[in-house]
Amino acid sequence: MQQDLSTKTAAVIGAGPAGLMAAEVLAKAGVQVTVYDAKPSVGRKFLMAGKSGLNLTMDAPLDQFVPHYAEASDTLRPILDGFGPAAVQDWARGLGQEVFTGSSGRVFPRAMKASPLLRAWLARLNDLGVQLQTRWRWIGWDGAALTFDHGRVTADVTILALGGASWARLGSDGAWADILQGQDIAVAPFGAANVGLRVDWSVHMAPHFGQPVKAVAWNAGDTTSRGEAILSAKGLEGGGIYSIARAVREGTALAVDLMPDQSVSQVAERLAKKRGKESHANHIRKTLKLEPLKLALAQEWARPLPQDPQALARVLKALPVAHAGLRPMDEAISTSGGLRFDALDPHLMLNARPGTFAAGEMLDWEAPTGGYLITACMATGRWAAQGAVAHLHAAA
């Protein structure tokens, strides 16, 4: 028979999806839980993510879902096996929020917003006795005690769920990395993930700002994305670009196939038709039925366009994207890098600080948009909390 944990305390630092899920699991186990967050309100990045439709997860079998976490797949597999796409959907329904699956397999609440779900979640946590302390910024340890800008706190177990290093205004500023490294705890360098490209456009592109680039294929080495991108004064944004951001960050050249459903020879054959008195640009547009935006991109990045049909077809099928790198990390949806898994045991407890666990985006994993980020944050929050509960029982 396991010990009653009602006299045990837990401090959860960070009130995003990982921290709130950890708080829920601990409270259900009977632990007295307090969640601390540096901002005036909780779940700020979660709410921002839901402004255009909260993508909770991807409706896919685990064997198709897990590989999207790349190098971290093996580490995260048992964690996601315990709380994967199906469990996320059941959890949302349990909070009274029905979900639906879109044509791309992405799962959304019927309300499409994050706020109803967050309100229901906070109500559940309140019913479980979870205490929330906002405007409490964690600044490190003083021996066994946690130190905040408001004072010292002691707890039997701690969950760190401090987020990555993007969107600092919403709370994820990565400042915790210096605290951990000061304790000789290994942290991998941060990098921008799921982020747009900086492009220094010529004045000729201004009329196209705000338009979507559709039906193309973005190619960076072995990485290909068929997603859309939006042209802006700053560059290119959108799912099509986010999917190849990692390859670009790692130095791979980027090209775009403006006609991905046709071969080079098919494009060349159409371009070889007689053009008469038409200008070269009009001939390209009419024979290929190429949208003005795609033609503008071709002119922007490959002017003067080749006259030879075969050469021009090769350009249009692999147009080099002239960019100035990724947008700043603070504009990224998520970040790579973070607390290394070799600094943690299999239950996500810090090897250097027994009783302290970590979860969420602060861990060293990376994934694309599409529900993978929120799912892994919630799953690791649950896993870390389960580890904390087991630690409390073992210490009894």
Score class of each variant (00 low, 15 high):
78 P>M: 02
293 L>F: 05
235 G>F: 07
72 A>Q: 00
307 Q>T: 14
379 A>N: 08
204 H>Q: 14
296 A>P: 04
353 R>L: 14
365 W>D: 10
209 F>Y: 15
52 S>K: 15
286 K>G: 03
15 A>W: 01
38 A>H: 11
384 A>L: 12
100 F>L: 12
114 A>D: 05
330 D>I: 13
202 S>R: 13
101 T>H: 08
328 P>S: 08
15 A>N: 05
337 G>V: 03
72 A>P: 03
63 D>V: 06
352 A>V: 11
163 G>F: 06
212 P>M: 13
127 D>P: 01
57 T>H: 12
102 G>L: 04
146 L>K: 05
236 L>W: 10
290 L>D: 06
75 T>W: 04
112 M>S: 12
108 F>K: 08
176 W>N: 02
105 G>N: 04
191 G>E: 11
149 D>K: 03
257 D>N: 07
255 A>M: 05
323 H>V: 03
293 L>I: 13
23 A>T: 06
13 I>H: 01
55 N>I: 09
4 D>I: 03
286 K>T: 11
75 T>R: 15
200 D>Y: 08
246 R>Q: 15
296 A>R: 13
152 R>V: 11
242 Y>L: 12
30 G>R: 00
163 G>E: 03
319 L>G: 03
389 V>R: 06
5 L>A: 06
253 A>V: 10
83 F>Y: 02
383 W>K: 09
90 D>F: 04
317 K>V: 01
128 L>H: 09
258 L>V: 04
381 G>R: 03
19 G>D: 10
174 G>T: 02
32 Q>W: 05
215 A>N: 10
213 V>S: 03
253 A>I: 13
318 A>R: 14
149 D>Q: 02
227 G>R: 01
290 L>V: 11
245 A>R: 06
167 W>M: 00
141 W>F: 14
132 L>N: 02
356 T>H: 01
329 M>L: 15
179 I>S: 02
284 I>W: 06
72 A>I: 02
13 I>L: 08
35 V>G: 04
358 A>M: 09
316 L>A: 00
166 S>V: 02
119 R>P: 00
37 D>W: 05
389 V>Q: 00
104 S>D: 13
254 L>V: 11
169 R>A: 15
86 A>P: 00
37 D>A: 06
383 W>R: 04
391 H>N: 12
53 G>V: 08
375 T>H: 14
288 L>H: 07
346 P>N: 07
208 H>G: 07
133 Q>D: 12
240 G>F: 09
326 L>K: 01
160 L>A: 11
347 H>I: 00
269 E>Y: 04
67 P>C: 05
1 M>N: 14
86 A>L: 14
33 V>Y: 10
59 D>N: 15
97 Q>P: 09
284 I>L: 03
150 H>W: 00
290 L>R: 02
226 R>V: 01
98 E>Q: 14
147 T>I: 08
128 L>N: 07
208 H>N: 09
